[in-house]
Amino acid sequence: MKTPFEILNIPRESGDDAVKKGYLAMVKRFPPERFPDEFQRICTAYEAVKTEKDRVKFALFDAAVPDVDALIRDIREDAEGDRPDLVSLQRLLAAAVRRIVTVDME
């Protein structure tokens, strides 16, 4: 489960301006009409660390139970996935031909 700072992609020591900047950058990247869930996540994170008092409050009293689904999603998001190379794609295509269900071909 990511912290609001990680969601907004800002360091923990950020000031009000940096937090706002991070928030706006993320909103620009994930506009609400295309990414409603992600946008909601960004807004919640921003509300949690908006002012200095919010940030101190978060540091002292945040006790949200790490959500397993969010944890898995975050680990997957953090992992840097890569594309298969051409040879792998060609193998995939060759295997795909063998996956055709023959009954449907009669």
Binding site: R83, P84, L92
Partner: peptide
């Protein structure tokens, strides 16, 4: 081979 591609896509 599918699994290899999955691993490559996920990065794990």
């Amino acid at each position: 081979s599918d699994r290899r591609i999955v691993r490559s896509l996920v990065g794990l």
